[in-house]
């Protein structure tokens, strides 16, 4: 049954690279802290801002901490933030979109107006506003980004529900006397999961990026947390002396987002070839 999908995935070699990198990412997030040569806060005496060497692959930072270890420790934070923010967004968006799309009428009007309003505040600004209420910090960044990308899920879910609702098999289930809950669970949900999974993958990449951006401007993770965005913020002051301070956390961040995006793109080609966002 999935042979067609597998053939499509296989057609592009880059998909394997991306999948490999994401696997490495997940592995690092799970076991990295145990495998890293140093702890995130260990200051190696006498090696402040040393360039990459066999002892410190990524060099050391302004406090003499091993950057390689800090990047590895940061992976777990990045993965958890990206996934949990997206989970919040997908869950809330799914509930809202299902209600708006399936029940329509007043529900649709209220939920979609609310979504329009949220969408008219640029995502990062909305996140900043929410952080203003909740205060800076990692957890709050997750909530802020989650709520920030919720309206996108609402829209996609509602659109898909409206399309699926028109399918004859849903009308057929109603004609059989099936109740609304089971129609949603059996007939609607399974048939809208394609677009939702695709969007979720792409939103994980966006969440990783935005979380790092918020930490970079000082609203997210606070030093000495080994978060990549926060590390880049520290790196700004030492750009003249230490290029590696910027390049390695920045590279890790860019590669992470890139590989998740590539994976999301091919998932879309496979699961949901007609939409683009």
């Amino acid at each position: 049954m999935y042979r067609k999908q597998w053939n499509k995935f296989r057609a592009k070699k880059i998909n394997f690279l991306a999948a490999g990198f994401v696997a490495l990412l997940l592995f690092t997030a799970l076991f990295g802290p145990r495998l890293a040569p140093y702890s995130a806060r260990h200051q190696v005496p006498g090696s402040v801002l040393t360039s990459p060497s066999s002892a410190h692959w990524f060099g050391t930072d302004s406090l003499g901490r091993d950057l390689f270890s800090r990047v590895i420790h940061g992976t777990r934070i990045t993965v958890i933030m990206g996934v949990s923010a997206t989970f919040i967004a997908a869950f809330l968006g799914l509930v809202q979109g299902l209600i708006a799309g399936y029940y329509g009428r007043m529900w649709d009007t209220v939920i979609m107006r609310f979504t329009d309003i949220l969408l008219s505040i640029p995502g990062i600004l909305l996140a900043i506003t929410i952080i203003a209420v909740l205060g800076p910090g990692l957890n709050n960044v997750v909530i802020a980004i989650g709520i920030g990308s919720m309206p996108q899920f609402t829209r996609v879910v509602r659109g898909s529900v409206l399309a699926v609702k028109e399918e004859d098999y849903v009308t057929g289930a109603r004609a059989l006397g099936q109740n609304d809950f089971l129609i949603i669970v059996r007939h609607v949900l399974p048939n809208i999961m394609g677009p939702v999974i695709v969007l979720a993958t792409l939103r994980v990449a966006a969440a990783v990026l935005n979380a790092a951006a918020l930490s970079f401007v000082g609203l997210g993770a606070q030093p000495p947390t080994p978060e990549w965005g926060a590390m880049l913020n520290e790196a700004r002051r030492y750009m003249r002396q230490a290029w590696w301070y910027t390049v390695f956390p920045g590279g890790a961040l860019a590669l992470t987002v890139l590989s998740i995006n590539i994976l999301g793109d091919s998932l879309r080609d496979i699961l949901d070839p007609r939409t683009y966002y």
Partner: peptide, 13 residues
């Protein structure tokens, strides 16, 4: 009361 639809591709989940 039952119904059979036109489009055989849309009528089965």
């Amino acid at each position: 009361l039952q119904i059979i639809f036109q489009d055989p591709f849309s009528s089965l989940n």
